[in-house]
């Protein structure tokens, strides 16, 4: 068991170190997210009485689009450098590789979220940074990274590659986005997290279900 976590950590640390050196993924995700916020701002500016009304949707859509950009890179860079084959040759449980990659993607998306939350507060003048909201974001991002990482491994081995990833990912991700948006609406209207317990359960159930399914099926995705 200890060895399993060592492998997870090794894969995670490898990805983090690459990112710290190149900053490829973070830069493109963050700039993309900032641009998306800017476009949303103009898209809604004169059409609605109060810009803060669209914040829940803007928040989750921006995260989903920026996140899919980063997830696409998770396996493409490995594949292009030929390092994926090396990773798979290692005599370790492959699900440990999945969890390492998944945690790396999770951290990348969380960092981008930490970057765009203050931007939304500034652009849309909404007090977004509260403990319940951060909890929902974290739980939602876990499910996002869980499904996104395995689908990224699927997409990288196809002809279409990153074009295919959003098409595969978004319909499966929909319940997560709906739950996240709905809870964010409620929290911004001043309701407590307890009033949204069913949504919270849905998100947690989604996370656990798809982490387990990914754990069981990842072997088949990287099998050569």
């Amino acid at each position: 068991m200890k060895r399993y976590f060592q492998v997870v950590w090794a894969v995670l640390w490898k990805d983090l170190r690459i990112e710290l050196r190149t900053k490829d993924v973070f830069t493109s995700m963050a700039v993309f997210a900032a641009l998306a916020l800017l476009i949303f701002n103009f898209a809604f500016e004169l059409r609605i009485p109060d810009k803060s009304m669209v914040v829940p949707g803007v928040l989750w859509v921006t995260i989903a689009f920026a996140g899919v950009l980063g997830l696409g890179r998770a396996f493409i860079s490995e594949k292009d450098r030929g390092s994926l084959a090396g990773l798979l040759l290692a005599p370790v449980d492959r699900s440990a590789i999945y969890f390492g990659k998944m945690l790396a993607s999770l951290i990348f998306i969380l960092v981008v979220e930490a970057f765009i939350l203050p931007l939304i507060v500034v652009f849309f003048n909404v007090p977004l940074i509260t403990a319940p909201l951060l909890l929902i974001l974290l739980l939602g991002t876990i499910g996002f990274a869980a499904v996104g990482t395995i689908f990224s491994a699927l997409a990288v081995n196809t002809r279409a590659r990153e074009v295919l990833l959003p098409v595969l990912l978004f319909p499966v991700l929909l319940p997560l986005l709906i739950a996240g948006i709905r809870t964010t609406i409620g929290l911004l209207e001043g309701q407590s997290l307890a009033e949204h317990a069913n949504w919270l359960q849905l998100i947690v159930f989604f996370d656990i279900l798809f982490l387990v399914v990914a754990f069981l099926t990842f072997d088949y995705v990287v099998e050569e």
Partner: peptide, 25 residues
Amino acid sequence: ARFAAVYGIFAFLSVPLTFMSIRWW
């Protein structure tokens, strides 16, 4: 066949969750 099978499993399992979430909406 393998990839489609993995996707088929994920896709099917997400449907009840989608239905529930929209129903609550």
